[in-house]
Computed example of a mutant assay.
Amino acid sequence: MIQSPHDRLPRQGLLLLAALSLCWGANWPIMKVVLSEVPPFYFRAVCLLLGGVGMLALAGAGGVPLRVPAGQWNRVFWLSVFNITGWNGLIVLGVSLLPSGRAALLGYTMPLWSTLLSIRFLGDRMTARSVIGLLLGLSGIVVLVGGSLDGLLQAPAGVVCMLLGAWSWAIGVVLFKKLPVAMPISALTGWTMLIGSLPLLALAVPLETSRLTMPSFWPLFGMLYNVFIAFIFCYWAWNRIMQMVPVAVSSLSSLSTPLIGVLGGVVFLGEPLGWREIVASLLIVGAVGSVSLKR
């Protein structure tokens, strides 16, 4: 099991978290744009496949060994299933089914599930900071989702997809700590993306090939953003953060991502900015600060 060297994010981790939150958060409205012209499974499968190949190519060019240690392929496989295939496949369906981009915030109930799972399977202990952060963060999510409750109830399949996606990600986070793979993070990230893309591609070919068309400029730009930013950079950064701190800290730190996603929807998609967004922003900033900052 990976022993985290810090109980709060060090300076390098905070910089990674800021970049990760901005880049992953901005991707929620970008996904909406891509899904307007690209079928969901093809969207995720192609971007993950190219992202995995690109990550491995960059790691290899930098002299990083790419070989998976003997006897650890099964660990890489299960990390790919839950962190990549399950999360990406389910959330892209949820985002396409739900009427509001804000519904994607259901996916960020992940910190609740991962914290509970880490207590049960990793023996982690809840600190006062973690409890406060969990309560603040989930309160912020509830405030944001509350404004879209009618829309959520009209698309229960989308709600189920998002919650199952959150569980898949939470299990993947715990497995990352429980079943460490003795290889560099860049190589591990590349292999999990590459392997995780294959089941999605296997679904896309028979189900979505008839719907494929050449996307216009902005959806194509969104796909390139996903390959190079949302996948190659962000997945590496996320795995690096998970190495640094316990599950509760890394999971709760991710709550800043949906906040950026909502603000991105306001700026780029013209979604309304009201009291819910402002209150939720304060709650989520408090949550991230309570588990990430030393002072």
Score class of each variant (00 low, 15 high):
L116V: 15
G123F: 13
G165M: 05
V95F: 07
S114D: 12
L153E: 11
M110G: 00
G123Q: 12
L134E: 00
F82R: 02
V131G: 09
G71K: 13
V92H: 05
L149P: 01
V81M: 13
K177A: 03
G94S: 10
L90N: 05
A155S: 15
G60N: 06
C161T: 05
L149Q: 01
R125C: 12
A187W: 13
L66V: 09
L153W: 12
T85S: 13
S148T: 11
A170N: 09
A157I: 08
N74P: 07
L112A: 06
T189L: 05
Y108H: 10
T115N: 02
P184A: 13
K178G: 00
Q154L: 10
K177P: 06
F77K: 08
V76I: 14
A166F: 04
F121Q: 02
L149K: 00
V143Q: 02
L106W: 05
S148G: 00
V131E: 01
Y108E: 03
L136M: 12
R129A: 15
T189V: 05
L164G: 00
T127K: 13
F82Y: 03
P99F: 03
T85I: 06
N83D: 09
I171E: 00
F77T: 15
W73F: 14
S139N: 06
W191F: 08
K177I: 03
R67Y: 01
W169A: 06
L188T: 05
N74G: 15
A170M: 09
G140V: 02
R129M: 09
